[in-house]
Design a binder for these strands. Sequence first.
DNA 1: CAGTTACATAACTGGAAGGTTATCTGCCTA
DNA 2: TAGGCAGATAACCTTCCAGTTATGTAACTG
Lengths: 102, 102
Amino acid sequence: MLDATFAALADPTRRAILARLAQGEATVTELAAPFAMSQPAISKHLKVLEKAGLITRGRDAQRRPCRLAAEPLEEATQWLAGYREFWEARYRQLDAVLKGME
Amino acid sequence: MLDATFAALADPTRRAILARLAQGEATVTELAAPFAMSQPAISKHLKVLEKAGLITRGRDAQRRPCRLAAEPLEEATQWLAGYREFWEARYRQLDAVLKGME
DNA sequence: CAGTTACATAACTGGAAGGTTATCTGCCTA
DNA sequence: TAGGCAGATAACCTTCCAGTTATGTAACTG
């Protein structure tokens, strides 16, 4: 699952789509509007996001509204949290150095 | 930068390498040992990690010890943090539902 | 019912990913 | 100095990815 999540997040178009969805539901056409890209290209990106579980889709007549699904983001965050102490250690070192300069 | 970071993290072999490096420096041969994969394949993965800034490499005679570099992980975490309220909101909803069932 | 809107699907293309084997380089050691 | 060890690089293959255009399909609208 982490594979699909990180792979999905590796594309700037897809991250921008998620950023848009963080502000609420949107249709495919709405999501496609900001990009200089064909509609099928966006549909493909949405499929990638859907397979990664990062979005879910409803139905409203001809429209297929997309919603953000947070679970994989949480999973990714938790994985990264395992390394948190690592860079915090760096900051403590930096702190120490700065204190030494006083 | 986030592109390269997330792309690098999308591969399980590379995540495993990072996990190993979290416990301290290691040489290429040491890193390659756990995997049923040729040494050049590992070297490629290391190059990906290096380009993404996730590792740095030193020199010790013929050995090129690798160290974990935390900065891109921090950057990725901060990006994800922008969505944190999103799933926390879900939990608050769940909480509310559970309380309603009492 | 004809046309249009909203989106999906198919087929193609160029380039990057991830693996392989074979070979080269640099450094240590006997 | 000859040989071996650690690792990088090259050349190749196959599969996937991100985009395209063209076409199909379901649902609304006049």
